[in-house]
Nucleic acid binder design. Structure first.
Length: 963
RNA sequence: GGGGAUUUAGCUCAGCUGGCUAGAGCGUACGAUUCACAUUCGUAAGGUCACAGGUUCAAGCCCUGUAAUCCCCACCA
């Protein structure tokens, strides 16, 4: 293969990925194995943070003996990370692009560091999301869900998803995700379902699962309930109506008091007995009524009380009395409850436990019945005949009209209040009384909090740990039932043999493939609901790593959980709770949360705004590496940050630069190097040794294959070492953008602009090879394709760069490296001054004169090539030309006096600028406290700087006088 | 009401343990061009670090307060 003139990602990427995959280099190398009889296999693990492999002896040397009796089964050296499973049914969006860029960089980095890295891919059945898509699909075909049984629907969606699947996996490959595809976990895989059932059974046996009649947020369109977290609250304008409830004389109502009943678990429509109509006071006189305010008049039929605040003096006398529910004969009591806010409206509030979350709680406190008046399909039930069957909206109109006619509607006003909406279709959610399965979260949350408070999980950004604790503190019981067929069936069966009174009403059974089962002669029917997807997703680290009770698993807990900050509560919190519950360990040691990718103006991407960026489109145009580099740029943990094509273009340019650097080095090696020399760099790994084994090949302190011959060479070694150190630190701290930035500047500004330029003069073949190799490996986690493409093109590298060994530090002479910095200052000053001179193309016109300056004298050719001045000579005789503004050098540009005088203004400005700097330094030294209290080295630095600037000013002034 | 963030160059963002003469990319201006790369090279301009106090020898960074922007949770009869 040869190097084309520019890097064409499209020509390499898919072949490279296929080669990686064919060689199985993404597979982890450490197996799990049974725990010994003593059962404490886990405890032998040494506390090891692979995130910090730079500490010298972490990776090299002694293969950790996890158990002396189990040779060859290392317990560390494992690095595991799971992919938040993308929807199996969809395409990747920009968020997935970021996810892969982050996670794959980590995976590749730790793979290069020699850890057995396992990036476990997944696909999500995305219960509700996919269901919505499928239902729409059904509708288009003229069908509805009600034509099919639950099992039929499940089978149909399975096929539907199977058709779509694979697309997403191809896209992940295109992004370079170094996943082990054999271990892809689908959220409906058998092992997932098994594990979920096991957990559910355990919870059931532990008494943490209960079936409760509670109010749930119910979407009338999708016919399913949601968890609190899935509800979207929006502020909307609404109307608040004042309605008079007539007060009934206590004595009259004594006999027909509405008996408060205990809310039974099953009793949904404990309807009060209808009461005969009776004479009442004049409704038009407010004194005879109690006025309540409501935004939902149609639910008044479900009212079971009117509540006032216990402190509210206005209603003291009314408490315990009864009021007549308008449009009916029902009498309901006036009760006291803190919920009633004396400041709001009239201070009296109607209580409708079956249709309002607060009222539900009030009802619980006062043992009030729950009267459901709106059914799941949105029709009125349990209401007077003339309202029966109306939709809630129709009913509202009629109720208002009828109230008005009776003079009971006393007022209305427009208000703004927040309304719960379906996050998918925007329909207003109806609080609905339903029996659902709930998880009692108290124990789970308490345990999770205690582990979090002990700092067992490190969060990036740090504050999210506290946010999570705060959330867990107020967590309410978790509704895990969903009324959609596409999901994991809840393994609970209800008794249908009425006669079997001794048997429990509900039993746990795994045979969810059957709608009806028999056990002990009793027949049971399957609950048709499925699990909330977060209930199964909460097991993700457990199921992806194949964690079991029996085996020691070096990949659990995960090293890191990387996911979106927006699902901290929905997912991360639940993984922690369930992980602890199932395994007793936190499921991951660190959490990195990324924010949203916004458009270039900081706006959220949305289809309606038309500002959606498709990552695959950018990959197609600029290459996978360019995309990855671009999206990591300027990004930090937890922040919603803008993204634009420009950053991808910058990434593309870097890839091309790297390509051309390699092309150039390769050309030098070919033209100058002889084969004998080049063979000495190969480092003793035989060609046929599998990649996996090379991971553990001992790292030795081999003597370098090169020697440095000039200060530029020492300098680049030093710079590369610093770069490596920075990248290692940045990766440990998840500072991806910084890692990319230091690589960018090292490769471009230092390696190409200075070192390679100087190598046009001095060619150090071995050093060129070694430094290029080092930079390529360091760059590989972020730009896997171009580095591999180059690696494969270079004749002196072997195997895949993807499984290469993270480079060791380069040897160099630090004094010589420091000298090069001085030379750079000289070169920059020459360039800058030439630019500032009037006229163009100055570099080629004027030579450089030095007086008694060994740095310049010794590096004449190097300076010439870097500044492009035509000649460099010793100044023989009196100074002439333009003196350069360098404190420690006697350097002149050989310029005619006429041109020099034109430079006078620039020179004056220069002197002023240095003067300002000098003043600031002097101010500092004049402060006795500074001299006394600041660290000694700082004071000395200041003194040195003053001396230097004073000397410089003196020289420049001298120059000015000459002009 | 409770909680969490953000505010630094025209734009998007770094700035970690206080030592800064505040950085990068993009953009802008000027210049270059056979010799790896115009997806290039060189040079430069561009800053009241939101504001007001405080601590300190020293504050972009720490403390107090203010303003603006944003997110999450709860409530809104």
């Amino acid at each position: 293969m040869t190097f084309a003139k520019s890097y064409e990602p499209g020509a390499y990427e898919s072949d490279i990925y296929a080669a990686w995959e064919a060689d199985g280099i993404f597979e982890p190398t450490i197996p799990t194995y049974p725990i010994d009889n003593d059962g404490n296999g886990k405890d032998d693990r040494e506390e090891e943070r692979p995130e910090d492999p730079s500490s010298s002896d972490t990776l090299k040397g002694a293969r950790p003996s996890l158990r002396s009796s189990k040779e060859g089964l290392p317990g560390r050296h494992a690095y595991s990370i799971v992919m938040p499973p993308p929807n199996a049914n969809g395409n990747l969006h920009i968020g997935h692009g970021l996810t892969v860029a982050l996670e794959d960089s980590l995976t590749r980095y730790y793979r290069l560091r020699g850890l057995s890295s396992w990036y476990i891919p997944g696909a999500d059945h995305a219960g509700f999301e996919t269901w919505v898509v499928y239902e729409r699909f059904l509708e288009k075909q003229g069908h509805t869900r009600f034509e099919f049984s639950r099992d039929e629907l499940y089978a149909r969606v399975w096929d539907f998803v199977a058709e779509q699947r694979g697309n997403m996996e191809l896209q992940l490959r295109a992004l370079g995700a170094s996943c082990d595809w054999d271990d892809l976990t689908f959220t409906l895989d058998e092992n997932v379902v098994d594990r979920v059932y096991t957990t559910f059974e355990k919870m059931w046996n532990d008494g943490m699962i209960y079936r409760g009649e509670k109010l749930v947020n119910f979407c009338p369109k999708h016919q399913t309930a949601f968890a609190d977290i899935e509800v979207e609250h929006k502020d909307e304008k609404g109307t608040l109506w004042d309605i008079a409830y007539e007060i009934v004389d206590e004595s009259e109502s004594e006999d027909s008091r509405l008996a408060p009943s205990r809310p039974s678990l099953r009793g949904s429509v404990a309807q009060s007995a209808p009461l005969r109509s009776r004479t009442v006071s004049n409704p038009l006189i407010p004194d005879s009524s109690i006025i309540v305010s409501t935004t939902r008049p149609e639910t008044l039929f479900g009212d079971v009380a009117v509540a006032v605040n216990p402190e509210d003096e206005r209603y003291k006398d009314l408490v315990g009395k009864f009021v007549k529910l308008p449009l009916t004969d029902k009498l309901i009591p006036v009760i006291t409850d803190e919920h009633a806010d004396p400041e709001y409206g009239t201070g009296a509030v109607k209580i409708t436990p079956a249709h309002d979350f607060d009222d539900f709680e009030v009802g619980e406190r006062h043992s009030l019945p729950r009267v459901q008046v709106i059914s799941e399909d949105g029709k009125m039930i349990n209401v007077p005949e003339e309202y029966e069957g109306l939709t809630a909206t129709e009913c509202r109109k009629k109720v208002l009209k009828d109230l008005k006619e009776q003079g009971l509607l006393l007022g209305e006003k427009r208000i703004e209040h927040s309304v719960a909406h379906c996050y998918k279709c925007g329909t207003v959610l109806e609080p609905m009384l339903k029996e659902q399965w709930f998880v009692d979260v108290e124990k789970l949350a308490t345990t999770a909090m205690s582990h979090l408070e002990k700092g067992e999980i490190k969060f990036y950004p740090e504050n999210k740990g506290k946010v999570l604790i705060n959330y867990l503190r107020g967590l309410r019981d978790w509704n895990i039932s969903r009324q959609i067929p596409w999901g994991i069936a809840i393994p609970m069966f209800r008794k249908i043999d009425e006669a079997a009174t001794d048997e429990p009403d509900w039993i746990f059974d795994r045979r969810t493939n059957l709608t009806e089962i028999e056990k002990g002669g009793v027949r049971y029917v399957r609950d048709d609901d499925t699990f909330d997807t977060w209930f199964s997703s909460a097991h993700w680290p457990i199921v992806c790593t194949n964690w079991t009770e029996e085996n020691f698993n070096p990949y659990y807990p995960l090293n890191v959980m990387e996911t979106g900050a927006d699902i901290l509560f929905a997912w991360v919190a639940r993984m922690i709770m369930v992980g602890l519950y199932v395994t007793g360990e936190v499921p991951f040691k660190e959490v990195y949360l990324h924010g949203l990718v916004l458009d270039e103006h900081g706006q959220k991407m949305s289809k309606s705004k038309g500002n959606v960026i498709n990552p695959m489109d950018l990959v197609a145009r600029y290459g996978s590496d360019a995309f990855r580099l671009g999206i990591l740029r300027g990004r930090s943990a937890g922040m919603n940050q803008a993204f634009s094509e420009n950053s991808v273009i910058a990434g593309r340019n870097l890839c091309n630069k790297l390509w051309n650097i390699s092309r150039f080095v390769q050309a030098i090696v070919e033209s100058e190097g002889d084969s004998e020399v080049s063979s000495s760099v190969s480092r003793g790994e035989s060609d046929d040794s599998p990649a996996a084994l090379r991971l553990y090949s001992s790292e030795t302190s081999e003597s370098p294959s090169y020697s440095t011959n000039n200060m530029g060479e020492d300098w680049i070694c030093r710079e590369i070492n610093e770069c490596l150190e920075a990248v290692e630190k940045d990766m440990t701290e998840y500072r991806f953008a910084e890692a990319v930035e230091i690589l960018y500047s090292t490769i471009w500004d230092k390696y190409a602009d200075w070192f390679l330029e100087s190598q046009k003069l001095f060619k150090n073949i071995e050093l060129l090879k070694e430094t290029l190799k080092t930079l390529l490996i360091a760059m590989h986690p972020f730009a896997p394709f171009v580095t591999e493409a180059i690696w494969q093109n270079l004749p002196w590298t072997e195997g895949f760069i993807a499984t290469a060994k993270w480079p060791a530090r380069l040897d160099y002479d630090p004094i010589s490296a420091e000298e090069f910095e001085k030379l750079m200052v000289v070169v920059s000053e020459v360039r800058g001054t030439l630019q500032a001179l009037p006229g163009t193309n100055n570099a080629k016109k004027y030579g450089l004169l030095y007086d008694n300056d060994s740095l310049v004298q010794d590096n004449e050719f190097l300076i010439k090539i870097l500044t492009k001045v035509p000649e460099i000579n010793s100044l023989n005789g009196a100074p002439r030309g333009l003196r350069l503004a360098l404190a420690n050098h006697e350097l002149y540009l050989d310029i005619p006096e006429k041109v020099v005088s034109e430079y006078k203004d620039a020179l004056t400005e220069r002197i002023m600028a240095v003067g300002r700097e000098l003043d600031a330094l002097n101010m500092r030294m004049m402060n006795p406290n500074y001299v006394e209290k600041a660290p000694e080295h700082l004071v000395k630095e200041t003194q040195d700087a003053i001396a230097e600037k004073e000397a410089l000013i003196a020289r420049l002034k001298q120059q000015l006088e000459i002009i």
